[in-house]
């Protein structure tokens, strides 16, 4: 993929996916500065890893979601070790009031999804990863499998397992909320 070396190709790619990536991050992070920073990091990682993208292994969306998951996971690991929270704050892009307001709107729009993520936190990691991508981020099972680098059949089994576990732990009306606006 030329997006790592062709600015025009990258621009088209960015325009196709920036809303979805921002949404993916905003469903998991409630700080507008961090949403901006992690969204930037996802695209930076896509630029750096563009040569590794193989369309035969999945869609652009699935590939990008895989990257976004890694970026979020890295942030969580770093944040856990970060004693001084100001270190992250000091390095952030300067956002004006309008920027923050727009990001906060998006973060607010994803509040229900973040609540659901909290509800899913008790599930085992494997099933939880699949149900997050399918029911929260709107990927198909095949795309989720590609993002997680597992076989589609494995993803289907894990999704089924996650929904079973969820039915046992959540009130009956909860599962119907599990489809929200997804990624591209």
């Amino acid at each position: 993929m030329n997006l790592g070396r062709d600015p025009d190709v990258f621009e088209a790619f960015y325009r196709r996916h920036v809303r979805a990536v921002t949404g993916f991050v905003a469903r998991r992070v409630a700080d507008p500065h961090l949403v901006d920073d992690l969204t930037t990091e996802v695209f930076l990682a896509a630029i750096e890893g563009a040569d590794s993208y193989r369309p035969s292994r999945g869609s652009e969306s699935a590939w990008l979601v895989g990257i976004a998951r890694n970026v979020l996971a890295a942030e969580r690991r770093t944040a856990a070790k970060r004693v001084d929270k100001a270190v992250r704050a000091a390095g952030q892009r300067s956002l004006d009031a309008d920027d923050i307001a727009r990001l906060e709107e998006q973060i607010d729009a994803e509040r229900a999804a973040r609540d659901l993520l909290t509800a899913l936190s008790g599930l085992p990691a494997g099933p939880r990863a699949v149900i997050e991508l399918v029911d929260l981020d709107g990927l198909t099972v095949t795309e989720a499998a590609a993002a997680l680098r597992i076989l589609p059949a494995t993803a289907r089994v894990r999704l089924h397992r996650a929904r079973q576990l969820l039915r046992r732990t959540c009130p009956p009306e909860q599962p119907q909320l599990l489809t929200v606006e997804g990624i591209s």
Partner: peptide
């Protein structure tokens, strides 16, 4: 799709990085 000003600024920064890589 219309991007927010922040999205546009980020795009400009990232395109510069891509251009530098190409160079």
């Amino acid at each position: 799709m219309n991007l927010t000003p922040l999205d546009e600024r980020r795009l400009a920064d990232l395109k510069q990085i891509v251009a530098d890589r190409a160079l």
